[in-house]
Design a protein around this nucleic acid. Structure first.
Lengths: 119, 119
DNA sequence: TTCTAATATTGTAATGATTACATTTTTGAT
DNA sequence: ATCAAAAATGTAATCATTACAATATTAGAA
């Protein structure tokens, strides 16, 4: 499917809207609903991951390797970072990134909910 | 301000809506806009932090100490975790939490945006 | 090839959190 | 008490996402 291809080609952490706009010219029958449906499906299958680093939009990433994300509070750009990044300044291929915050989110199941899943 | 007090008293990572509903009975003149405005202000001042672990709503936390967050994908409950939590099973005061995903988000400024801030 | 049922795709309308903005209220200094 | 600045309020708009019903596509059986 074109949407998965797009995500694997473009490591730009696009939003659903960006994917739609980039794909629409070459697939004029594409609907935004299809983009949302497909992204949800791909995420449920574990083929892609969703990124909530931005308050407004959900972003998607086809890179399943363990890595962290950095968002510039000025321009909104999102970069990949290695997991072992320190809390201080960090250099990457794009220059120096000044890190001011770090958030770590775990997801999974609490004990009672895990029981329920087993059935 | 009552909203800050609420956040310091209740370590429940509430949403703006929850804060409004809990505070409204005792402050009948309270408006939801005020809650949003105040939360934004408190966050800009660095007095509270916002949590984007939930796709739907932004949550707020008055605990500024370094800690991670866990969200149960079943019931949606959010727990605090120590930073050094491993990727595997983890026990807390509430029982065993099964961790299936971990996301690490850094925020700050890229080089060009950091220049711009200096002015 | 034709039919048909299952599946995928589409478009429109609804939802719901958040914000914009204009108005009203409160505050604090004179 | 007065008045301007600041804070709080209410309503309406915004906008990403989803619900849902309708349409189109596919693949396998006849």
């Amino acid at each position: 499917m074109a949407i998965l291809d797009y995500l694997l080609m473009n490591a730009t952490h696009p939003t659903a809207d960006t994917i739609f706009n980039d794909l629409y010219p070459s697939i004029p029958t594409l609907s935004k609903t299809t983009v949302y449906n497909t992204l949800k499906l791909l995420e449920e299958q574990g083929v892609i991951i969703s990124i909530n680093i931005d308050e407004k939009n959900v972003r998607y990433d086809g890179d399943l390797s363990d890595h962290a994300h950095f968002k510039c509070k000025g321009c909104g750009c999102i970069y990949d970072l290695p997991l072992e990044t320190r809390e201080n300044i960090h250099v990457s291929g794009v220059g120096t990134l000044i890190i001011t915050e770090c958030q770590i989110y775990y997801k999974g199941y609490c004990a009672p909910c895990y029981e329920m899943i087993q059935n």
